[in-house]
Nucleic acid binder design. Structure first.
Lengths: 362, 362
DNA sequence: TTGTACGCGTTATCAA
DNA sequence: TTGATAACGCGTACAA
């Protein structure tokens, strides 16, 4: 492997010049630069990352953690899209992602060793879970961190998030307009702030309009489990006339339950999902869902983190708006907006809001 | 951040001794070691990875690539499990995974820059696709590499793989024993060696027993698409009496098609999947499937790569046996093995085989 | 516009 | 059992 010295020698310049040709940190005469580039090409030279890191104190690496311990969240298209956004934004600036293994934060685990080894400049933690020792460890080690979704606890790390509460509010308003009166929420176990938001705002909103807040929880996102729970819900003495599911996969299970029980959707039962995944467009009937933007969230997370890395004392938290996409599964009254049309109907747009720096749930 | 010098000073020893306490590269007297550890603890010292990398020439980082360009393979539980295996094995030896972004290998892409920057000691490429420039680039840069599934081309990198061909053979034998005579294969687009293996061995085996090999391909793993294709298959003038799907999700779509058409499974139609995922155990009827071991495959991949990194000239390729798990969806004749019992029935076990170093498809 | 020389924090060689 | 010191390859303050 050629080093900067060999390139300098071959180009007839000093290593300083070679360095600056590759870092771009100071202007180099066009002629000189050409000679250097030529020499580097000839020798197949690539600047050594470790040496760079040693000299600059930067590793150009971001630690990345996903909540993938159980099976439950693996089959969720949310995370691949989030990763795309992170990746796109990181690529621009030469950052790479080092996976932080599950179980990191527990004393003595290999992941904790990695955290302690200073192998990255900062971390992105996707959907930190309540009770997970990772974020406390990250804070203790003073590693710059941004989370997608909010970490639990009093002074969470800077975060970016989807406005799930707003999404639920919009959805419930739409359901009221469609004449549904007894909504139930089919939620899921797990200590994510997203679930907390959905459940809290569902309960608040339903009660504010004088109804009882019925919430049941599945222990995974599977459609089968959702179907079973929905069947039980619909067999109650006073069954709900709408079921809002915490994910599109669960909503599909609800549709299946209705089909099995001979209950017509949307006439007798309204069904809505969350995430506006490909499932929502392809189920029968098509599914009303709350659209979030994992890709944009990933980009925003990296932007925040890079702010921190560039010396910003603190960065603003960011709440991305969620859009209600109305489709057949909740459209039982004719409206001007032709529900059921190709892509669904999007509720009146709202613009991105910036939340207060260390606010709790918005 | 404390450095080795400060620890040495505080412990009253040379930096050499501190170094050896942390690297374990030579014995240190118990008393001395205790003093060093104490000092390190007091100063919150952690060895600097970049400096280590510079001195040793090793980054303790493995590049990792998943075939996640489209949505299609994201929703496959195979990859999370593969990652678990890789991760477990890597953690033991202090290696971490740096994600190689999609599109790497194309000249000028950020991923290619990362490959060229020498940021890792080796790479693991999960299911390299035909036509992807990644593996050629990796070879050109002489980065030690192992693939899960085989890379296309004449002299592929060392690989570990599931014995899909053996799995298909066992499955077809079972189907013949159950009296099925006209199997069709519901495959999927995409240049993975795994698909090639399944299609090739299906065709070989079916023809060897004098039947016509019917193969149709979906352009994704979705259950909906599989259902539509299955409906078309079953509407043919001479419909198949068995449909073998390239994944459990597709097989579930086939079950749905049969249900919609009023075709009884397994009496009139046999259905089998691939992967033995949670879907197979939970569908109605339960699904016969070919079980593979992504977790063990991941472990094996890392072991092979670490062999390469430790100077092995070449490592043996490894073919892990696939097990046929017989459940209700193909069990129309009574057998001694009580198909449909809890976990399904596993075909006579075979032991892991080691393939010839640069063999093509086994 | 370019070059000299030092420092980054560690490992490895050689010596004691 | 331990230590002194030369790499490792790059960035950058300072000088020219």
């Amino acid at each position: 492997m050629a080093s900067i010295h060999q390139v300098a020698a071959r180009a007839g310049v000093s290593i300083t010049t070679v360095s600056h040709v590759f870092s771009g940190n100071r202007p180099v005469a066009e002629q000189t630069r050409a000679r250097v580039v030529r020499a580097a090409l000839d020798l197949d030279y690539r600047p050594n990352g470790a040496a760079r890191g040693l000299a600059t104190g930067r590793t150009m690496t971001i630690g990345l953690h996903f909540p993938f311990e159980g099976d439950s969240f693996v089959l969720n298209p949310y995370f691949p899209e989030l990763l795309e956004g992170l990746s796109a934004e990181a690529a621009e600036s030469g950052y790479g992602f080092l996976l932080i293994p599950p179980g990191s934060g527990r004393p003595g685990s290999p992941g904790t060793a990695m955290l302690r080894a200073g192998r990255f400049d900062g971390v992105v933690v996707a959907d930190p879970m309540a009770g997970d020792p990772l974020m406390p460890t990250v804070r203790r080690l003073r590693i710059p961190a941004v989370t997608t979704g909010r970490a639990p606890g009093p002074r969470p790390a800077p975060w970016v998030d989807n406005d799930h509460r707003g999404g639920v509010r919009d959805l419930l308003r739409h359901l009221r307009e469609q004449g549904y009166e007894r909504p139930a929420l089919l939620s899921v176990e797990g200590g994510f702030s997203y679930i907390q938001d959905v459940e809290d705002s569902f309960a608040d909103e339903v009660r504010r309009h004088g109804a009882r807040a019925v919430i049941v929880r599945s222990d995974g996102l599977s459609g089968e489990k959702a179907r079973d729970l929905a069947i039980r819900l619909l067999g109650r003495r006073h069954p709900p006339d709408t079921i809002v599911a915490a994910s599109d996969r669960q909503a599909q299970g609800v549709l299946r339950a209705a089909e099995d029980l001979g209950i017509r959707v949307p006439a007798e039962l309204g069904v809505a999902g969350e995430g506006d995944t490909v499932l929502a467009r392809h189920s029968h009937p098509t599914l009303t869902s709350v659209r979030v933007r994992p890709r944009r969230l990933g980009e925003a997370a990296m932007q925040s983190l890079m702010g921190l890395l560039n010396g910003a004392e603190r960065v603003e938290n960011l709440l991305l708006p969620a859009e209600l996409v109305i489709r057949r599964s909740t459209s039982r009254r004719a409206t001007a907006s032709r529900p059921g049309a190709s892509g669904g109907t999007v509720s009146p747009g709202r613009t991105a809001r910036t939340a207060r720096p260390s606010s709790g749930p918005a």
